[in-house]
Amino acid sequence: MSTRTLIAALACTAAFQAPIAHAADDPGALIACGTTEADRVTSREEALARSQSWLDARVPYSQQACYRNEHGSYRTDCSGYVSMAWGLTHSRTTTTLREVAAEIPRADLRPGDALTTSYHAALFVRWADDAKSEPVVREQTGPDGAAPVERKWTAQTANAYTPLRYYRVTGD
């Protein structure tokens, strides 16, 4: 992992990293800003459109701030960004995103899936190469005040992340 990628990833480290047994105990719910009644059934196209809304608005990164638009109110860090794109009830943490998603093989990544570690999460957009080794992602990453970006990751960076698929995504 490059120094730049490591710094950006560490900037997205959620305030609470301990694994949580139940979603009701998820600390993300305490700093969720607002909630919806239930996790949405979200198409891949909707997830990308929702994520684009934060790119267009240049929503500034913060683990303590919330941003509200037509998609709801979510914490403006990396896991809040993925939570918003997926239409979750509240902003999850990088650890608790796994409670609403399943690990998938890297080669099966499709638009709207996520790449996660215990300290960072990004939304998968597409492959930049035919070998399916360099993903294009959208991510909300620090330092505080930085806007979300769409960028290509190197294969080395991507290999440090676990691919996840939201359990209520449609369009497969």
Rank of each mutant, 00 (worst) to 15 (best):
L164R: 03
A160E: 12
V149P: 09
P148Q: 00
A160G: 07
S133V: 08
S133M: 12
E150D: 08
N159H: 08
T157C: 01
G145M: 13
A155G: 12
V136F: 09
R151S: 09
G145Y: 15
P143Y: 13
T141Q: 09
S133W: 04
A160P: 02
A147C: 08
A146R: 13
E139I: 00
Y161C: 04
A146S: 15
Y161F: 06
E139V: 02
W153I: 00
V149Q: 13
E134G: 01
D144E: 15
P143M: 13
T141M: 05
E134T: 06
Q140I: 00
A155H: 10
S133C: 07
E139S: 01
G145W: 15
V137L: 07
V137M: 07
A155K: 10
V137D: 13
Q140P: 12
G145N: 14
R151E: 11
N159W: 04
R151V: 06
A160V: 00
V149T: 13
A155T: 07
P148M: 00
T162A: 08
T141N: 09
W153G: 02
V136E: 15
D144V: 11
A147G: 06
V137S: 08
T157A: 12
A146P: 12
Q140Y: 06
V136Q: 14
P163R: 02
R138G: 11
T154C: 01
N159Y: 03
L164G: 10
